[in-house]
Design a protein around this nucleic acid. Sequence first.
DNA 1: CGCCGTGTTGATCTCACTCAAGTGCGGTGG
DNA 2: CCACCGCACTTGAGTGAGATCAACACGGCG
Lengths: 222, 222
Amino acid sequence: MQAGHPFSRLLLRLERSSVLSDADRRQIANLPFKIINCPARSDIVSRGYAPSGSNLVLDGLLFSYKTVSGAGRQITSFFIPGDIAGLATLYLPIADHSIASVGPAVLAFVPHAALQQTIETSAVLAQALWRETLMQGAIFHEQIANVGRRDAFARLAHIVCELALRLRAKRPTRDCSFAMPCTQRQIADACGISAVHANRVIQELRRLGLLDWDSGRLKFTT
Amino acid sequence: MQAGHPFSRLLLRLERSSVLSDADRRQIANLPFKIINCPARSDIVSRGYAPSGSNLVLDGLLFSYKTVSGAGRQITSFFIPGDIAGLATLYLPIADHSIASVGPAVLAFVPHAALQQTIETSAVLAQALWRETLMQGAIFHEQIANVGRRDAFARLAHIVCELALRLRAKRPTRDCSFAMPCTQRQIADACGISAVHANRVIQELRRLGLLDWDSGRLKFTT
DNA sequence: CGCCGTGTTGATCTCACTCAAGTGCGGTGG
DNA sequence: CCACCGCACTTGAGTGAGATCAACACGGCG
């Protein structure tokens, strides 16, 4: 990940929609944290447990999911660097969903107590963090519509495009390509379709010359 | 709806998970509001607009939805009396989804400015309201898993049971029955299936002696 | 009275699932 | 160094859940 303080990316994110004072910036910068080097595909939060903090993603890709008895798991959303995963447990102690890593990831674990204190100290930061949870909620909304109403082709395209947009928002590339660490299996779980069918849809997208996805790199071929 | 102040039900709700001071209670009770009598199936918030307040449901049933081009609409969640619909626009001005009424509904429209001031005045109330949005987020999560992974039968059962639980939590009935103002069409839209198929699933549920749904009243037949 | 929306039923079709087998690659141990 | 294993991806065949289209019964309402 980039050089500099672990929270620099979070600050940038928050300042995109809030006006922070110097005190606010200091407040964030002084947040206690613990760097966690997280191996590939490992659980970070397990449903039913009460984590004592939230995880700021510094590098890598996380996803939240639910397992449905007898029907595998459904990935509900992805967390990219700059996102805070597990913010919901700030005020809803028991996690209602699990969070796991796609590839190896670097996280900054921030205790709830510290976040709560920050929120009580600065109304602006409270608002900014609240907004973060609301934006995650908006992504859920979209995901419900996506999974509920679109066919496999549109679902997969939608999810890939969403990831591309969010990732490219932070690091635009000339050739419309980006690192795509997910396996087809994971994309299938996010789309609510079987892995086999996801594979066929991806091949169809390739055949139509819409995308080129190979060895962890995905490229839109206009 | 019940006699008493329009916010009495909201207060009860908030006190279920927060400890309010007298000042907090007064703060809520003195919130400015405007009673809205809303006809059946009318839009309350339209996607793309920036409403100037949120709507506390006093009576009736609302739902939030998204329309997917060429694939009808997807209902993402229901709001029952005591819920605040459109809380997301508090800090995300442009509504990313629409909200509409099922049957006739009674709402208390509360300006965002008043809510924001409340939030800045009382940390406890801020937390309580934040928690409300998080709980709505948890329902979204569940809905994604529901629509993404379960078959039509389980989806429909899940949604009906969720509504039953939430409605009965406020007004338990002896015979496991409750007012179910939705049309089959609306349930289908919430499940992400066609109306025809929803009808067949409901008949199957009836045939199995699991529920009895007629003329706006739904009963679980053990 | 005619109209529209809801619920119901039947026939047909197709998208996506399951099962199954095979390829290619990276890692591990002999 | 090679044999082996596990995982991601690929391909094929058969099946089934759910969509679509169409028609009709019924009740409420202008």
